[in-house]
Design a binder for these strands. Structure first.
Length: 249
DNA sequence: AACGGAACCTGAAAGC
DNA sequence: TGCTTTCAGGTTCCGT
């Protein structure tokens, strides 16, 4: 990646910068990027001179690279312009629902520090996961979506991994045995890779996902043919097969 | 500690 | 066709 110097940085919608920035986004002007990393749903960009930018996309956020003269897109809230050896470029943060946010800080923010292991880059240690789950009576699906347990698992991955591991999402976290947790760990790792592969292959038609049961309530279970249930668990839409996903309690 | 519910937003899809 | 309602892959806050 060409190393660049930030020549402009601007937030046209201050609400994306939450909480109130301890440091203004403009303070990165003149800085170069030292490192970019991702853990779970968070992106961290470290600049020289100490600034750090954290970005969470929420439900509808995205960073779009474009030319420096590209006009402001609809729902574009933040832009960062960079000068590289190959010319000037721009990245824009676009987010219709504005659930995403950008945090400027001089150090790692709490949300970043407290993230659990990232299944893609760290893998999942089943024993470690079992230890964490044993301490909680919450539903297993709620625990999986807790970013301090595992980083990056959201509603789709939790739903589909539980389907593949044949675990009822309403099961108490502390009721799962070691074998079930090991199976779940493998399913999660597989689901993360599968979802990324799917996204990278989306060159063709927006083909319906073939990964699991998410969003398929009422349809036939791809494994046993039973009618898939759709419930609200912790306020989140949850699909599962009442016949082949077993409930531990 | 943990749970339910509401809030934060807009757009797409479904319903009428 | 067009207006209305419902729902969405995330997080946080507030009351119980």
């Amino acid at each position: 990646m060409a190393r660049g110097i930030v020549i402009a940085a601007n937030a046209s919608d201050a609400r994306i910068m939450r909480p109130r920035p301890t440091r203004k986004i403009k303070s990165i002007v003149g800085s170069s990027i030292v490192r970019v990393s991702r853990r779970g749903k968070w992106l961290r960009i470290e600049f020289d001179r100490g600034a750090r930018l954290f970005s969470h996309l929420g439900m509808s956020g995205e960073w779009i690279a474009c030319g420096i003269d590209e006009k402001r897109a609809k729902h574009e809230h933040v832009r960062i312009d960079v000068k590289t050896t190959r010319g000037e470029k721009s990245v824009r943060y676009v987010d219709p629902r504005k659930f995403g946010r950008i945090v400027m800080s001089d150090e790692d923010i709490e949300e970043w520090r407290e993230l659990g292991p990232d299944p893609l880059t760290d893998g999942i240690d089943a024993n470690d996961l079992a230890r964490r789950l044993k301490a909680s009576r919450r539903s297993i699906k709620t625990s999986l979506m807790d970013q301090t347990i595992l980083a990056g698992i959201g509603n789709i991955l939790a739903t589909d991994a539980l389907f593949h591991a044949r675990i009822d999402p309403r099961s108490r976290s502390n009721a799962l045995d070691a074998r079930a947790i090991a199976k779940l760990a493998r399913a999660l790792e597989h689901e993360v890779k599968s979802m990324i592969a799917e996204n990278e292959a989306c060159e063709g038609e927006p083909e319906q996902s073939k990964r699991g049961v998410y969003g398929r309530g009422g349809e036939a279970c791809p494994r046993c043919g039973s009618r898939l249930s759709r419930i609200l668990l912790d306020g989140r839409g949850t699909t599962f097969c009442p016949r082949c996903q077993n409930r531990a309690r």
